[in-house]
Design a protein around this nucleic acid. Sequence first.
RNA 1: GCCCGAGUAGUGUAGUGGCCUAUCAUGUAGCCCUGUCGAGGCUACGACCCGGGUUCAAAUCCCGGCUCGGGCGCCA
Length: 437
Amino acid sequence: MEDDLGNWRRTHYSEELNADIEEDVTIAGWVHEIRDLGGVMFLIIRDRKGKVQVTLPEKKVKDKLMDKISEISKESVLMVQGQVKEDERAPGGLEVLPKEIKVLSDAETPLPIDVAGEVNTELDNRLNSRFLDLRNPETLSVFKIRDKTFTEVRKFLEKEGFIEMTSPKMVATATEGGTELFPISYFEKEAFLNQSPQLFKQIMMASGLDKVYEIGPIFRAEEHDTRRHLNETTSIDIEMAFSDHTDVMGILERLINYVYEKIEQECSEELKKLDKDLKPPELPFERIKYDEAVDICNKKGIEITWGEDFPTPGEKAIGEEIGDYYFIVDWPSEIKPFYAQPKEEKEISKAFDLMHPEFELSSGAQRVHSIELLKKRMINQDLEPSEFKFYLDAFKYGMPPHSGWGLGAERLLMAITGKPNIREVVLFPRDRKRLIP
RNA sequence: GCCCGAGUAGUGUAGUGGCCUAUCAUGUAGCCCUGUCGAGGCUACGACCCGGGUUCAAAUCCCGGCUCGGGCGCCA
């Protein structure tokens, strides 16, 4: 029989309890462990912030309460009202002696995954029961860090004078190319899920907002099947007027450094649970030219001809050589999108990639702001300028030079948490095979 | 999409032709125990992905399917 919440409310999280609290407290959470020693019973109650022991000495607790609790199953939801008591025999030196307990929800047994984390459950099973997986303090740590990361990214960009914007996720055709799109039905029209906010944040550069950023979902219909790709992911995008690529590279490296510092300082408990030793990367990040990167690959036996993008083994080879975050600059124009500004030597562009030793994190560039050059580059890349009218119009009536980048939020979180699989840092990942839950 | 590998109790595993009536841990259920903290002790429960084939004999070998993992490609 499950109890009614009634007028009970949580007065304290586990972490907030201390021996100086004289009045009765009400704690709320899940039964993490049950240890029945016969004459005394211990319940470990877990909430978002930690765990606390509830001690039930048989002689001091009402029979009715004892009977009720002796039938409890792990992971059931409880509220406990009682006295906080200091006792060095209790884990953490504190325990709660209950006067009343409400069983708000009985948990079925057995559980589909091991929540306590003593037996490692495979990711696939964990994702099928993500709500239970989150009850594992290690998994929870990943998502507390994720939350903190987004908070700090926003703080940093706000401090730098950026304005948060939101672009549409449902679009007609005409995106910047380079990837497959998911088609959707939009009343009588065909539409797509947007691959990035690129075109929209550039349009805002003609609005006078000067510095904008967006954190939001992007969709790619590629049939990739790797540990570092998803079909729905989160991008952190900025666009900045009156700037060139070197300006936004500076913002990017300082942002990464700042987020690392903040996580290191304010998520030390979470990092410890993940067994991750986080060191902010030193500023400035190394900048290597595309040509140098090609040389490194060739030296290491990965053959690349000029004008090709780096294959996965190439990225790893360069990462091994550098050992920390680095930029690749001076990319051939032909392998960068139409909106990347060419340098005076036209075959080189003002585009850059930010690399982690194991994967790409971000790419950006100074953008083309001349409408004539834009049209020319579109045609070169087999795109039809007339389909981009909504975008090109923004370049007609005063468009300042501008630059920006897009940063893969999940890639950043992989780097911070040290998780080898991108699915670990997304609550409900969407990949080639998974659409549920 | 290509290549490689794997599917054994709820979870994680051992077992690679007969010693399998299938190992161990965890879990679940029950009993004992007044200070546990990965509690302990005793007892019980629970599994060979599906379909076909080879063989006297298949968890084990072969074929097909399904599912999962890794690498690559594509892509960020």
